[in-house]
């Protein structure tokens, strides 16, 4: 009976919380495409090869416009991420020229990148980025998946959502029609298309594959400890349930003394 009531209590709490969070779902005009992501769910993990391909897409396509300022090359080799080998990470970093200094003569200089360096930004500042993109700022992609309601599904949908505009829809020069963008107008030209790049692991680079891979990569970038979080969480909850069971029976035993008094 008590347990029954407890379940009701738990349910009502959950109801209230879900009810209140539901109300946040921002009013986007169209349902996002749904993907069965490997990282979703309580045991979700990233698909390692998808992460590596996703990095390749970012590097060869998106990086020419979008920065990822909170990521360092070393992150690419860390556990729970794309897990490139140490040599691969070093080689990736060395492929970039990085500004450093001042040296002992007070001069700034460039040197090949190291694993500890941050990802190199495409533009020196926001104004330069806007000037090069018709007045729109290509947002930093480090936490973009968490910065849009709809998360990974939205990013994937956005990348897949370029279409012919409806006949009566008016677009200015340099603005494109996208089904999933707020207001359907976006100043980013469709960045991906079938076979745009050649995957180093030989996977066929369809638009769908490219979009999925880069979205997976961006999800990891926004939440690099997702795998550790899921793993720890499962352990914590199992532990709490076991402990609660023990405490429940101790409680019954202790209260037996009171209940038998009457």
């Amino acid at each position: 009976m008590t347990l029954n009531r407890l379940i009701k209590l738990t349910l009502s709490i959950l109801f209230v919380v879900l009810f209140s969070s539901k109300s946040f779902a921002a009013g986007s005009n169209i349902e996002n495409l749904k993907v069965d992501w490997s990282f979703a769910g309580i045991t979700g993990k990233f698909d390692r090869s998808s992460l590596q391909r996703g990095y390749q897409v970012y590097k060869e396509v998106c990086a020419s416009c979008h920065s990822m300022q909170y990521l360092s090359f070393r992150n690419l080799g860390e556990k729970g991420g794309p897990e490139f080998s140490e040599e691969e990470v070093k080689a990736i970093a060395a492929g970039y020229e990085v500004n450093d200094g001042p040296n002992s003569d007070g001069e700034m200089f460039t040197r090949p990148g190291r694993a500890s360096d941050k990802f190199v930004k495409p533009y020196p500042n926001v104004n330069a980025a806007m000037a090069a993109n018709g007045g729109a700022y290509p947002p930093d992609l480090s936490v973009i998946v968490k910065a849009r309601s709809g998360g990974a599904n939205y990013i994937y949908s956005l990348l897949m959502g370029y279409e012919e505009k409806p006949a009566d829809f008016v677009l200015d020069e340099g603005v494109y029609y996208n089904k999933y963008m707020e207001g359907n107008k976006i100043k980013m030209p469709a960045p991906l298309s079938d076979d745009l790049i050649e995957y180093s692991d030989g996977t066929k680079a369809s638009l769908d594959q490219l979009s999925k891979d880069v979205t997976t990569f961006l999800t990891w970038a926004a939440e690099p400890h997702l795998e550790a979080r899921h793993k720890t969480g499962t352990k914590v909850i199992i532990y709490l349930i076991l402990l609660a069971t023990l405490v429940y029976f101790s409680m019954k035993k202790i209260w037996l003394r009171v209940d038998s008094e009457k």
């Binding site: 407890l6 738990t10 919380v17 899921h230 720890t232 499962t234 914590v236 909850i237 709490l240």
Partner: peptide
Amino acid sequence: LMFMIIFAGFVF
């Protein structure tokens, strides 16, 4: 402990 289970559900 019951409360913490819900709490942990959100956190993790």
